[in-house]
């Protein structure tokens, strides 16, 4: 049985349709990534699933409960890591966990055992009495994740959990999330980082303009939607090369600024011919989820 299932979700603000007929399904113990450019409807979708926003059409069931009708009961078993930190700045690390636990109706005895375990999970035991403004960005995110676990949730919603973190801090968060998946938690994650989705998610759904335009395991999407190899080409002669040979040498050729992305099944042959051309610099690599994403949603900026 699905932990989460949404059918035909629609949400409109004035004339703008933010979510347009979205279906989502998430099986227990898996991680589903919602990918999409800014304004694709990811955060609105999460708010609908939490019962904070009523959809104009469609139905939602979370943990077997109808949302928004039984949203309170559903939220008792959900943990949320929001996009923007909203920790209590007046409180210490421990007080943040304590106060948040009370919102779930947890008593002093339950909190006395959970808080030390979560401090340990988040690597914040030595910081338990530090006030929030003194924490680094990575520590704040770890605390936000620990806070989301205070009710030992079955389902976690993570809205861009590693945005703004340095690589070290990001890897620590990823390790934590993998441990949670190993414990059997179910995760719904929105992210801009394709690498994050590829590492953590069993399935990803690509949203654009409020619609799901692709869904599958990251490897399936890469194998099914895009050529296996990319050669990134730049340098003085790149434009000339693209104009004369590009169309024949590549199955698909895209330009972003001064770089040409040549998608192909025959990487080796292409690389040989590029190596023989002076004035070119190039990098051959396997296609990844980001290439799929850019193919599906285009390269123009979304603000």
């Amino acid at each position: 049985m699905a932990v989460l299932s949404a059918r035909g979700l629609c949400k409109r603000y004035g004339a703008t349709e933010v979510v347009r007929g979205l279906d989502l399904e998430l099986a227990p113990g898996l991680c589903l990534g919602l990918l999409g450019p800014n304004g694709a409807g990811k955060t609105t979708t999460l708010r609908i699933l939490l019962g904070l926003v009523e959809p104009d059409a469609g139905s939602v069931e979370v943990l077997g409960l109808p949302v928004p009708r039984a949203a309170r009961e559903a939220r008792i078993r959900i943990g949320v890591v929001p996009q923007m930190d909203n920790l209590d700045p007046d409180f210490s690390v421990r007080e943040n966990l304590l106060t948040y636990g009370r919102y779930f109706g947890l008593g002093a005895a339950a909190l006395a055992t959970r808080i030390p375990a979560l401090l340990d999970f988040a690597g914040l035991t030595t910081k338990a009495d530090a006030r929030v403004p003194t924490l680094s960005g990575g520590m704040k995110r770890r605390l936000t994740l620990a806070r989301a676990l205070i009710n030992d949730p079955d389902l976690l919603f993570l809205d861009e959990p590693t945005t703004g973190l340095d690589p070290q801090a990001r890897h620590v968060i990823w390790q934590g999330l993998r441990r949670l998946l190993a414990q059997g938690k179910t995760i719904l994650l929105t992210t801009h980082f394709m690498e994050e989705a590829e590492r953590l998610c069993d399935r990803v759904a690509v949203l654009d303009h409020g619609k799901k335009i692709a869904e599958g395991a990251p490897r399936e999407l890469i194998a099914g939607l895009i050529e296996p190899t990319v050669v990134e080409i730049h340098g003085d002669a790149a434009e000339t090369w693209a104009g004369t040979h590009g169309r024949n040498a590549c199955e698909r050729l895209e330009q972003a600024g001064e770089t040409w992305f040549c998608y192909t099944r025959e990487g080796a042959a292409l690389v040989d011919s590029l190596a023989a051309t002076p004035g070119l610099r190039f990098l051959q690599r396997p296609s990844n989820l980001e290439d799929v994403f850019l193919k599906l949603t285009g390269r123009e900026l979304r603000d």
Binding site: L50, L52, R72, E73, R75, I76, I78, V80, P82, M84, N86, L87, D88, P89, Y100, Y103, F104, G105, N151
Partner: peptide, 11 residues
């Protein structure tokens, strides 16, 4: 501080 937002994610 968005404290209310944090609270609305709870029951």
């Amino acid at each position: 501080q968005k404290t209310w937002e944090a609270i609305l994610n709870t029951p």
